[in-house]
């Protein structure tokens, strides 16, 4: 009887200590998906900017709203992107893409940067 009680108490302690981890895991999964979308978006904007060539690259900005429906659950997120092209003398240009979004009232962002040499 005593052994059973000790085992039950130990199991209870372990379960109670693990319980707070579940919401954190769930939040982590959501953040991971948002971050993945932001990185995709940033890389695509970077590729588009680089495809314009050294002389044709220009700064731009915009936003995309993404609604994901998985198992009838809709999740809507707005991603704001900003592409900044800056001269870096003597013969370089930097392209910095920043993607920002808000998640549970937290402002998050991802950045991708590339340097281009003058041809």
């Amino acid at each position: 009887m005593l052994e059973m009680m000790v085992a039950t108490v130990l199991a209870g302690v372990i379960l109670v200590s693990l319980a707070p981890l579940l919401p954190q895991l769930s939040r982590g999964a959501v953040t991971g998906r948002h971050r993945m979308a932001a990185v995709h978006l940033a890389q695509q904007q970077l590729e588009l900017t680089l495809s314009q060539g050294y002389a044709g690259m220009s700064s731009t900005s915009g936003s995309i709203v993404l609604d994901s429906t998985i198992r009838d659950v809709v999740q809507s997120t707005r991603y704001d992107y900003e592409v900044v092209v800056a001269d870096r003398p003597p013969d370089l240009r930097s392209v910095l893409v920043t993607v920002r979004w808000t998640e549970a009232e937290r402002a998050l962002s991802e950045q991708v940067e590339a340097l281009v040499v003058s041809p």
Binding site: G62, S63, I64, D67, T69
Partner: peptide, 11 residues
């Protein structure tokens, strides 16, 4: 299972 992604943007 249905997976659906909708994106919207104003240009």
């Amino acid at each position: 299972e249905l997976f659906r992604i909708e994106s919207r943007s104003d240009v």
